[in-house]
Design a binder for these strands. Structure first.
Lengths: 162, 162
DNA sequence: GTTTTCGCGCAACTCTGTTGCATTAGAACT
DNA sequence: AGTTCTAATGCAACAGAGTTGCGCGAAAAC
């Protein structure tokens, strides 16, 4: 009757415990949700998934997410819709400085492209010091690309409003 | 007694006129502000600069900016502070698909790195179709880099809260 | 100069995220 | 197990960015 696959829950619990701070239901649950997701989740999505189990306050979710990012258990991505999205941090706590993301223009899904091979050596004006590089590729994900193409086709036949 | 350098104002007026839509004081003024700025401006900054002349409603500024972007006279950038910033679009209406920006972590200033040399060929999972690439380099701009270094030094001596 | 209609101003609203404060519950210690 | 201490939670109220609806005013078409 556990609402979350035990594996993610246990991994989350372990990760929270390792920080030395308090292991609360809320922290574990939110982190478990992030670990289970294969894409970056908005606060709204996280709140929804977490509240299927017990209840959790909106503000608590915000604060837990803030805590998780400050402890490098998650990282946040600024979408172009003014909404933060969150990922469970990879197991490597070091490489927090060269994220690359893919955002689907159709379904809005954001995934992490961990192969941050690009983004090296961008030419800057003199006097400028680079610290982080954020690269976002936008386009159509594997799920939406065929659908979008089909939609374009049908729109070409009868073009209707709304 | 004109509040804006005539050059920018005139260029703005011309650009608006070319779209075929109505040439209003508001559209011209906002575009002139963008043309005059050498960096991306937030809505707040734009509103401030524009209101030094006559008055202009908050909402109108939003709508004008939306209109400008949809007519390719400006483009907007999502900052990591959840605030849109706006640039006058370059004179080339084509290259709307590979922006590169620099955001200063100290003063928050955003400038356009038009040499979008980077961002080519990011490896994507199969089935994914890239459409746009957005690259943001964060760091310290030429103005802030020395100041930030000095601040770090003095903070090392006496550390204080807020 | 009159008419038409697009765009502006105003007010009220939504949505994301934050702050202050009283209460609850980890976990450390008997 | 019970006590105690304090960090986290929940609640309510707030703040900032951006949006929507609607009547009026002013571009531009006639």
């Amino acid at each position: 009757m556990t609402p979350m696959t035990p594996t993610f829950h246990d991994r989350a619990e372990d990760l929270v415990q390792r920080t030395g701070a308090r292991v609360t239901r809320q922290r574990v649950e939110v982190l478990a949700v992030l670990l289970a997701a294969r894409r970056a989740l908005s606060h709204h999505e996280i709140e929804g998934r977490v509240n299927r189990g017990a209840g959790m306050d909106r503000v608590t979710v915000y604060r837990v997410l803030e805590w998780l990012t400050s402890h490098h258990l998650a990282h946040k991505i600024a979408g172009d819709d003014r909404v933060w999205r969150f990922n469970a941090a990879g197991d490597e706590p070091e490489r927090t400085h060269a994220h690359a993301h893919f955002k689907c223009n159709d379904c809005g899904e954001v995934i992490c492209l961990d192969e941050a091979t690009a983004a090296r050596s961008v030419p800057l004006p003199s006097g400028f010091h680079p610290q982080e590089v954020e690269l976002t590729v936008k386009g159509l994900c594997a799920g939406c690309a065929p659908a979008a193409a089909a939609q374009r086709r049908s729109r070409a036949h009868a073009q209707h409003r709304h």
